[in-house]
Every structure is written in C-alpha cells, then in structure tokens.
C-alpha cells in the first residue's frame, strides 16, 4: 500500500482550508434557505388600513383600482407578479418599488393607507424545457 496517503487528512485539509469550507457551507445554506424557503408567489393581497379588501391570483392578468383617503391607487397584476402602477402619494415610494415577484414582498402606499403584499400558497405549475 505504498500509494496510499501516509499523512492524516489534517495534512491535506489545513485549518484555514476547513474554515473556508465551513464559510462556504454556511453561505450555501443561507442562499438555499433564502431562495427556496417559499415556493413561487401565488396571490396578491390588497389591504386598506391593514384590512384585507381584495386578493387576486397572480396567474390572471388584471388591473385593479383601490380608493383610499387621498385618491385612487392602481395595481397591475401581470405574468405572475404585481406592482403599484400609480398612487396619489407625494413621494411615490410604492410605485418606484416596481414589480413584486416573491412571497412576502410588499409595497406600502402609506399616504393612501393601501398596501400590496404577495403571498405563497399552492405553487403554480410552470413548464421548464432545456
């Protein structure tokens, strides 16, 4: 058995190597959890003053308007994502946020007391081809 490593694994995997590997594994776990913890977003929920006023499936394209204290907020649902298209608020934060795609993402139009949230739920089936 001349070819078999005579040195223990410690010689091959030095302390710093082990640290690099552990850091890599930690990063990998964090990445996997953040990307896979919830399936695709399935539903858009519209709330006024924190109260659910409407919920729409994301697989049907539509435009929704919700009236709040200072005007009308327009919400667009399109190809599995949703966004606030227009809002009477002065700073337009929720409009500039753009498309929401993942469960848990939220656009808050505070001046008009409207919020748009995506939730998960039953995964929608997509086809995938190589």
């Amino acid at each position: 058995m001349n070819w078999f490593p005579k040195h223990p694994i410690r010689k091959l995997l030095r302390p710093g190597d082990a640290l690099v590997l552990l850091a890599g594994i930690a990063g990998w776990v964090m990445l996997s959890v953040s990307l896979w913890q919830s399936g695709p977003a399935a539903q858009a929920q519209v709330r006024r003053d924190g109260v659910l006023v409407a919920a729409y499936p994301l697989n049907e394209d539509r435009t929704v308007s919700v009236t709040g204290p200072i005007g009308t907020t327009m919400i667009r649902i399109e190809s599995g994502r949703a966004r606030v298209v227009s809002d009477p608020g002065p700073r337009q934060y929720c409009v500039r946020q753009g498309w929401l795609t993942r469960p848990g993402e939220m656009a808050l139009c505070a001046p008009n007391h409207i919020s748009l949230t995506l939730t998960g739920g039953q995964p929608t089936y997509e086809s995938m081809a190589y």
């Binding site: 995997l13 030095r14 710093g16 190597d17």
Partner: peptide
Amino acid sequence: QSRWFGPVTLSIVAAL
C-alpha cells in the same frame, strides 16, 4: 501561510 491554507482553499475559491 502554507501552514494554514493549502490547495483546498485555492480550489474552493476558484470553483466559486
């Protein structure tokens, strides 16, 4: 720092 870091570090960093 060859006492601490060896080929495995190089290989992992390059692969990533």
